[in-house]
């Protein structure tokens, strides 16, 4: 039982990190960035590449953050900025991001192939300790702590810093933001850097925990992230965190009454029900059905 709770906290933390980046771009720009899973995968492989060059794991996570963040900014310049300039609707950006995703995943495959990879032996902490009879491994515990720290940091950043205020103004009304003297281009670049960087960290951490990164690893997270965002409230940061843990605990709980091959049905069933009953999600404020 305690073991299952530990698992739920772990997977929930990864869901949350993944969904935070996803939801950040959506809340600021209304774009569903379908290249986010590819950035997640890129994070895992950037860390792998760094560690193969002898970089320690902790530093490799930082490298993944920076590389993926930069990739996110480039992604925006190439695939979204031209659309934004002519006021194209969100669907165009979504299709464009699919194109970028195809390119990124294939580039990773060209380097590492489609199969499961492993991080260099001994590069990841393997120690196991026990707390009150519960076996915990160091790696996962550190990952959970780091993930929660990042969630708090992002919340602080959005709530209490100047950049955060600019992002909220931008999300509210881009034209007004520009009139208020906000450097909109810089704020958008920051959004993509943070979003993609968080995605990259999530990928690296998940890659560490499973020790088997592969080129399609982002895919199942993409669908789960939809569930997380809708349940918590589209575009809401606390909503994404809440949705992530609700989903991970729900999934673990569902195993007691659903056969394991139906585990994924829980996420999508939940998503579906929330959409029909309360489309704005638990913490969402947006009115999704305004006339």
């Amino acid at each position: 039982m305690a073991d299952q709770i530990y698992n739920a906290v772990f997977i929930g933390s990864i869901y949350a990190l993944f969904a935070l980046g996803f939801t950040l771009v959506f809340s600021v720009l209304d774009i569903l960035n379908l290249a986010h899973p590819a950035l997640f995968t890129l994070g895992a492989f950037t860390a792998l590449f760094a560690m193969q060059q002898g970089v320690p794991a902790a530093l490799a996570v930082l490298v993944a953050f920076v590389v993926c963040g930069a990739a996110g900014v480039i992604l925006d310049r190439v695939a979204f900025a031209p659309l934004r300039r002519r006021n194209a609707p969100p669907l165009s950006a979504m299709i464009s991001s699919i194109g970028v995703s195809l390119i990124l995943i294939r580039l990773i495959q060209l380097q590492y192939g489609p199969d499961l990879q492993a991080y260099p032996a001994g590069a990841l902490p393997a120690a196991v300790f026990s707390v009150g009879g519960l076996e915990l491994d160091t790696l996962r515990t550190v990952i959970i702590g780091l993930a929660i720290g990042l969630m708090l940091a992002l919340t602080y950043l959005v709530r209490s810093t100047r950049l955060g205020r600019e992002l909220r103004a931008l999300a509210e009304n881009p034209r007004a933001a520009r009139l208020l003297g906000i450097d909109v281009d810089r704020a958008i670049a920051a959004t993509f850097f943070l979003s993609a960087g968080l995605g990259g960290i999530a990928g690296a951490l998940y890659g560490f925990a499973t020790n088997s990164p592969f080129s399609q690893m982002g895919q199942s997270f993409e669908l789960k992230a939809f569930s997380v965002m809708i349940v918590g409230g589209m575009g809401s940061i606390p909503g994404a965190v809440l949705g992530a843990y609700l989903l991970s605990f729900g999934e673990i709980a569902s195993l007691t009454f659903l056969p394991s091959e139906l585990r994924d049905a829980f996420a999508f069933g939940l998503l579906f029900v929330v959409l029909l009953v309360r489309p704005r999600g638990i913490l969402g404020q947006r009115d999704v059905d305004r006339v």
């Binding site: 569903l32 939809f226 809708i230 998503l271 959409l275 029909l276 489309p279 059905d289």
Partner: peptide, 19 residues
């Protein structure tokens, strides 16, 4: 539902079918 919400709802249905 409209927009992305409609897209995601139909997508979720698709995944339920697959599962």
């Amino acid at each position: 539902l409209r927009g992305v919400y409609l897209a995601i709802a139909t997508l979720a249905f698709g995944e339920v079918v697959r599962v």
